[in-house]
Design a protein around this nucleic acid. Sequence first.
DNA 1: AGGCTAAGTCTGATTGACAGACTCAGCAAC
DNA 2: GTTGCTGAGTCTGTCAATCAGACTTAGCCT
Lengths: 162, 162
Amino acid sequence: MTVTPTDPPALAYSTENCTVGRAMDVLGERWTFVVLREVFNGVRRFDDMRRRTSMPRQVLTNRLATLVEQGLLRRVPYQVPGARSRHEYRLTEKGFDLYPVLIAVRDWGDRYLADPGGSPVAFEHRGCGGEVHLAMVCADGHTVTDPRDVMTRPGPGAHPAS
Amino acid sequence: MTVTPTDPPALAYSTENCTVGRAMDVLGERWTFVVLREVFNGVRRFDDMRRRTSMPRQVLTNRLATLVEQGLLRRVPYQVPGARSRHEYRLTEKGFDLYPVLIAVRDWGDRYLADPGGSPVAFEHRGCGGEVHLAMVCADGHTVTDPRDVMTRPGPGAHPAS
DNA sequence: AGGCTAAGTCTGATTGACAGACTCAGCAAC
DNA sequence: GTTGCTGAGTCTGTCAATCAGACTTAGCCT
């Protein structure tokens, strides 16, 4: 019996059509981000991820499956000489585009949760070597430093009742 | 019996001292981000959040409590005339600093998960009116467009074994 | 044939999500 | 001065998810 009778996950906790809610449907599971961090770090294989994160096998299986299903990862076959062919997990473009989120989370984590020694990883710009961070910019090119300078407006797809 | 005998949450799934893992200890619960979205949108009261998100009361109670405990929100008393005094939830600075994460998530969600009509919210720069997005920049001021231009290096607080 | 390994699946116990009913404090109206 | 209303919860029971540990499977190698 290979069929898992899990009924379709069916997008949950979204306020109407809020894309943040929807994104959290995809990303909100506990371990999802940790998996993505590993993949961004170049860890692509099941057991490597398991060893590094010590997450339960089944959860990893599930997360990888969901991420593949959602189009964030794809399975790519590979073969180490003298071993049977297996597959590893790589980012799709949709997955790659989560990079800013990862950096945003890391920036925040570094500021508030790092050990006294500092962050265990650094992201540097290939070529110039400068450390990479996130910035909020507006369409006119201004850099926004204070969130209070950002106004939330209804967008084109806003829900009528509010 | 008012004492809930929940043992301290005790940081879980972190690879060593990875700040992404730690951040996800704080942010990784399903509804946390949805709560933060509401607070950033100016929704500060229990029942308003509940009405807008239709999340279970108890979960909201728990999330708010964890967020207060983690120092992302603080409870502020308020009083509507002719009603008893209550309290609402406001962002602390630590909470405010999550704004880039929220925008990063929204940017991604808008790109891949929006309705055909587009995003239901827009963030605009107070003053100039331009739409606010996130950008990756390096210390030398270059804007990074491709994640592949970012190299991950061990940082100052890297764990020895790897 | 037997062993090894990566990537799983199966099973059962603990934890968390969720819904619905109940509580509690203060104001207001009767 | 008791009844009712409202916001912000708590209590209880059910159902799903997490987790750990043992088992499985496919291919290669000796």
